[in-house]
Each structure stands twice: as C-alpha cells, then as structure tokens.
Design a binder for these strands. Structure first.
Lengths: 135, 135
DNA sequence: TCTTAATAATACTATTTTAGTATTATTAAA
DNA sequence: TTTAATAATACTAAAATAGTATTATTAAGA
C-alpha cells in the first residue's frame, strides 16, 4: 500500500527540478524528461494538470514551456497529493449506502483515526517543494 | 484515497463483534452477516484469511464456526492492515527499475517521510480490537 | 450411516484505479 | 509560413478492489 502515488512522485521531482533553475525560467518538458528520466507523455499530462490547478503557467509556441507560478515554499506535498490522489481520508467509513451499526453510538475507530490524522496532516503540511530542494 | 481498505474495515467489524461475545464462543458467519450487515461470501473469505493468518480458528461441520485465537488486546489494527492491504509504505520510491537521481545524494523526501511514518506507526500500533470495543 | 449445517478452497467476474500511449489541434516566435 | 513548443482528448493495458459462484469437505446428530 503506497502512501504516495506515482503521479505525485513525478510531480514532486519535476517541480523540484524547475525550482532549481535560476530566475524562474521557462522549462520544456523534454528538458525535465532528459534530466529526471520520467516518461514523457505521462509527465506532460501531469504538468498540464499542475497548470490547470494553478501551480504552473504554460507557454505555447516556440520558446514555450512551463514555469512556476507559486513559490517553492508555497507548494506543499499535501497539495500535490490532493491534486493527484484525492483528499487523504484516514477516517473513511466503508459501509457506504448501508446502515453502519456504529454510526449511532459514534464509531470509536473513526474517532481514534481522526486524532491521528490531524497530527499527520500537521507534519505533512510542513513539507514543501522548498523544503525538499536542499538535498 | 482511502487509508483503510474495505476488507480491513470488515475484518475490524467482524472481530469486534466476535470479541463482544461472552466467553469466546464459536460464531457463525451467518450470525455476523445478520448483525453487522456485511456481504456474506466476501466476509467468509476475509474470515478464512484471518484463520490462515492465525487470528481465528475455524471449526467445520455442524455447530462449527469461527472463534478468536488471539486476545482482542493482541490484535492490532496495523496487523489487519498488513494482512489485507500489505505493509504500509510511506517512503516508497516510485522510480522502480530506473535510476533515481536522488538516490545518490539521499532522497530528502524519503528521509522526511520516514520520520513521519515512524511516529504514525507508533500511534497506529496502539489501536487494537480491545481498544475499539468500548464504543 | 445418512442427513444436515457448517466452513474450505478455488475459480471466476465486474468495477475502479493506475499508469501510461496515441493522435490531432493550437499557439507563437522567428 | 515553418517550426518548436504545449493543449486537449481519447484510448489502452495492467493491477487492485470488491465482490460472486461453485464444488468439496467436515463433523454432529438422528
């Protein structure tokens, strides 16, 4: 069971690569593909999604490419996880349509997980692209 | 993105139900299905797996059913998650066969996640079937 | 010993998610 | 107007998830 999906992972790598460029240059997908060895078409779709979500700007045409919109310190790992994996749900009740006998008396499992999830979020929220660039 | 899969969730419910029975009785699948409203065939397979893994004993034949082998305090949520979802991997590197450029200099993302994962494990490990029975 | 009420084992299936690929359109600089 | 870039959309293969179906086995009890 993976905590971080492949798209999120690729997005992190690409964003770190972009953030490392001096003075927020426009970067081409080909460049990232070559340096980070990521699958081209797939990375393209990931960057397109990041652009739609406001993380990146895309410039078509010759001399085009992608560039960072937000500062590296403003892009959290959890933002990317939410973008590509959906909101992380620690306390999901899986008895969807049916009547969960625990709902009435308050599900103890969910209560415990909610507390743990809150602390986990606090820690994960501190991980940003900027905090990952030092390595 | 769900943290706990459906099988794990069903297993938790079934085990709590069994643990609530006075004096570790043999419980039939039908009984659990009726009381907890879980899908019969699927629950059967879940209980069989729990039996193979040593959580439950199964008794065939008339008067048969499943019974707890371990004490409710000895069955951790993380044991069940591992059984049904595989070991939770917070720090997976997704560049499988390829060369991750970060491996050399030590991947900062993995380092950070490793620390968070350790604390998460410590907390999750305290959740047992017994601790979930009070509700 | 035969019936019956239970689980065991195995194989199958449908849906969703994951991880891509392929194709065609659009854009803007030179 | 050519060319080098991304955009958009549709398609596909594989794996995981969430089951269902079928047949075998077992042991109690009449």
């Amino acid at each position: 069971m993976n905590f971080i999906s492949r798209d999120t992972d690729y997005a992190v790598r690409a964003l770190i690569y972009m953030a490392r460029q001096p003075k927020a240059e426009v970067v081409t997908v080909d460049d990232i593909v070559k340096k980070e060895r990521l699958p081209e078409r797939f990375l393209r779709r990931i960057l397109q999604k990041l652009a739609r979500k406001g993380f990146l700007a895309s410039n078509k045409g010759k001399g085009g490419g992608f560039s960072l919109v937000r500062s590296p310190g403003g892009i959290r790992l959890t933002d990317l996880m939410e973008t590509f994996q959906g909101k992380m749900n620690l306390t999901n009740c899986l008895l969807k349509g049916r009547i969960c006998p625990n709902v009435m008396r308050g599900c103890l499992l969910r209560k415990k997980l909610r507390a743990i999830g809150k602390e986990l979020d606090n820690k994960l929220n501190k991980i940003t692209i900027a905090s990952l660039m030092k390595g």
